[in-house]
């Protein structure tokens, strides 16, 4: 009897800790300066929050442990993938970054690639003979 009570208290506290991380994730999404930093706040804290809630429920209902493990694995795989897809799409369509942002190596490389493609296209249009020299 005492053991059940102890388990319930422990499980409830772990679920509460998970809820705290989920709350922090929400607060982070509100407070962060731009889309990318918001995605970051949303991804990390929700993953740990979710895992803690799963762990807490597992302590409350040990017979669900395997199913909860499966759910936790699913969250661990899909959460980063979705955040990556959102961030990639956001960067691709040029969502602005916070003013405090320093270097953006991806933008630099993409610009360099676009410049090169443009130069090559221009070269092909007005200088077919030059391309012949290269070959």
């Amino acid at each position: 009897m005492a053991e059940t009570a102890l388990r319930e208290i422990l499980g409830s506290f772990v679920v509460l800790a998970g809820a705290f991380f989920l709350f922090s994730a929400g607060l982070g999404v509100l407070r962060m300066p731009d889309a990318f930093t918001r995605i970051q706040a949303g991804t990390k804290a929700t993953t740990l929050g979710n895992l803690l809630v799963m762990l807490g429920v597992g302590i409350l209902h040990p017979d669900w442990a395997l199913k909860l493990l499966l759910v936790a694995g699913f969250v661990l795989i899909t959460n980063p993938v979705s955040s990556h897809a959102l961030a990639r799409a956001g960067h691709f369509i040029g969502i602005p970054m916070a003013p405090s942002t320093g270097a953006d190596a991806l933008r630099d490389d993409e610009n360099a690639k676009a410049e090169k493609a443009k130069a090559e296209k221009a070269g092909a249009e007005n200088g077919a003979d030059r391309a012949g020299d290269g070959a």
């Binding site: 982070g28 962060m32 930093t37 320093g102 953006d104």
Partner: peptide
């Protein structure tokens, strides 16, 4: 690392002023 990341994140989220320098690196 996940727990460490979350503690760092809590530090940013509950700071009085969010003082970060984001950027993209290779």
């Amino acid at each position: 690392e996940l727990v460490r990341a979350n503690i760092t994140m809590l530090g940013y989220v509950y700071a009085r002023r969010i003082d970060i320098r984001p950027g993209v690196v290779r």
